[in-house]
Computed example of a mutant assay.
Amino acid sequence: MRHLKTPRLVLAAALLSAAALPLPALSAEQEKREATIIVSGEGEVAIAPDMAILSLSVVREAETAEAALKANSAAMADVIADLRKKSIAERDIQTSNFSVDPLYRQDKTGDGNYEAPEIVGYRVTNGLTLKVRDLDQLGTLIDAAVKLGVNEGGNIVFTNDKPDAAVAEARKAAVKEAIDKAKLLTESAGVKLGRVVEISENFARPMAQPMYRTTMAKEMSDAAPPIAGGENTYTVTVNITYAIDQ
C-alpha cells in the first residue's frame, strides 16, 4: 500500500510551493493615486421680502377656567372675523398655541415657611400664526388686532414665498467663484485642471429675525406701528473637487 502515499506527498508539496510564491506586484497605475484639488465658492443674493409670518396671542385670566375660556374665545372670534374682512385667506390663518393653565398663590406663614400652593384662577392662551402676503397691511393688522383683544405679541419674520430664482442666482455665483479659484490655483502651481470628480452644496435659508415682541395693551395702539421689511439674503456654498492632469 506504500504506492498510495506518493500522490498525497506530491500534492502537499505542490500546495506548499504555491503558498510560498510571492503575490504579483501592483502595477504602477494601481499604486498611483489620482491627484485632486478641492475648492469652494460662495454666492449671495439679497431680495426684498414679499411675505411676513406674524404671531399674535389672546390671553385672558379669570377665577374659573370656563370664564377665562369664554372671554378668550370671544376676543379671538372678533380678531379672526376682522382678519377675514381684511382678505386674509383661511389657509394663512392657523392656531399655533392653545393652553389652559392654573394660577397659583402661595402665602408665607408666620414662621417663615410657605403654605401649600392654592389655585386662585386660570389663564387661557390662544395663539395665531398668520401669513401676511400684502406687507402694506402689516401695521394696520397689528393695530386692529390689539384693539380687538390681542394682548401678547409674537414675532414678525420677513420671508419670501418663492425664493427659487434668488437661490438659483446665488448657486450660479458660487459655482463661478469655485471655478475661478480652481483655475487660479492650478495656473499658479503650473499644472492643468482636469475633470470634475465631485460637487456638493450647502444652502440654508435666512435665519428668522424676531422683529416684534411685546405685551400689548389697547391704549398703546393709537396708530399702526411702522414696519420695515429690509432684505433677505440667500447664501449658497458650493464645493468642487477637480482632478489634476499630470
Rank of each mutant, 00 (worst) to 15 (best):
L103Q: 09
E169H: 10
P210I: 06
K32W: 00
K5A: 14
F203E: 05
M211C: 04
L185S: 06
K131V: 02
A67R: 11
E63C: 10
A81K: 13
Q209F: 04
A165H: 07
E31I: 07
E118P: 08
V167C: 00
K108Y: 01
P49A: 02
A189Q: 11
Y104K: 08
D164Q: 12
F98K: 08
A178N: 07
L54Y: 00
T125P: 05
N155F: 07
A182C: 07
D101I: 15
V197L: 13
K147D: 03
K218T: 09
N97R: 12
L130V: 07
A228H: 13
M76E: 05
V59P: 03
V45M: 00
D136E: 14
V157P: 00
A168I: 06
T159Y: 02
S57G: 08
E169S: 15
G190C: 07
E152P: 04
R8T: 07
V58W: 02
I227V: 13
Q94Y: 08
V167G: 00
K85M: 12
T237D: 08
V191L: 06
L193W: 03
A182K: 00
A174H: 01
A71W: 07
A75P: 03
D245N: 11
A81D: 10
A228R: 15
A116Q: 15
M211T: 13
E115S: 14
K176C: 10
S200C: 06
A48L: 04
A46E: 14
I179H: 11
R33F: 06
N202E: 13
A19L: 15
L135H: 05
Q137Y: 06
P117A: 14
I93K: 02
Y114K: 03
V167E: 01
G230P: 10
T109V: 11
L26T: 12
I38V: 08
V238C: 05
T186W: 05
V39P: 02
F98I: 10
R84E: 13
A77S: 10
G41A: 12
A65N: 13
K32F: 08
T215F: 15
K131M: 11
A75V: 05
T36P: 02
F158L: 05
I47L: 06
Q30E: 14
D164H: 09
